[in-house]
């Protein structure tokens, strides 16, 4: 009886001490982290439409995979020059979060991967320029993942097909949303090759 009491006390003290330490660290770091993330988000948005003269404004919320994302409108002297959406795709071991920007013709201007938890060395190649640059200038109907050489569509990274597909699907969802909201008459064919 006495021993079980000592075991319990030993464990409880360690657990409480650890809990207090973690709580204190969380309390001091979370505001700093929140600020840093906010600043990074603003910088990322700015990067997506560098030629915008006015601050990029939020245009609305949308949801994908049951999570909430936002979309934005970048303007230069009152005229819309780019549309930006945050979106994500379900990858091999994580949701790949990204920002996409479209020009007024609904062609992809740029993609920025914000965060992911894909396999280091394989899946994380989706962040690199050779893969992401493929999307530039493509329209919705061209954004299809192909295993093998392609110039017209998107070529999957060998060894990281699932991560590549996740990015492609995320971009497609984002393009579709922005085209529905802003594309005048150039509505993409919605249902094709989704699954």
């Amino acid at each position: 009886m006495k021993e079980i009491l000592r075991i319990t006390i030993s464990l409880v003290v360690i657990f409480i001490a650890a809990g207090v330490i973690m709580g204190m660290v969380y309390k001091t770091t979370s505001p700093v982290k929140f600020q840093a993330e906010k600043k990074e988000k603003e910088e990322a948005l700015k990067e997506m439409a560098p030629e915008a003269t006015e601050p990029i404004t939020k245009a609305g919320d949308w949801s994908n995979h049951g999570k909430n994302y936002e979309y934005f409108r970048a303007t230069s002297s009152g005229k819309a020059i780019a549309y930006i959406a945050s979106t994500a795709g379900k990858g091999y071991s994580s949701y790949i979060k990204m920002l996409i920007s479209l020009d007024t013709d609904m062609r992809v201007k740029g993609i920025k991967i914000l965060g992911h938890g894909e396999t280091p060395g394989l899946g994380d190649q989706i962040e690199e320029a050779p893969f992401l640059d493929q999307f530039k200038g493509k329209t919705f109907t061209q954004i299809i993942l192909i295993k093998g050489e392609t110039k017209e569509n998107i070529q999957a990274i060998s060894g990281a097909t699932i991560s590549s597909r996740a990015v492609t699907n995320g971009v497609r969802d984002g393009v579709q949303l922005l085209a529905e909201k802003y594309g005048s008459g150039v509505k993409p064919a919605v249902s094709e090759v989704r699954k």
């Binding site: 360690i14 330490i21 973690m22 969380y26 770091t29 979370s30 982290k33």
Partner: peptide, 18 residues
Amino acid sequence: MFIIATWVTVTDLVMSAY
């Protein structure tokens, strides 16, 4: 295990902030 988890969490939190 708890000590390890604590230190790993602390490392993660501090790095993510600073």
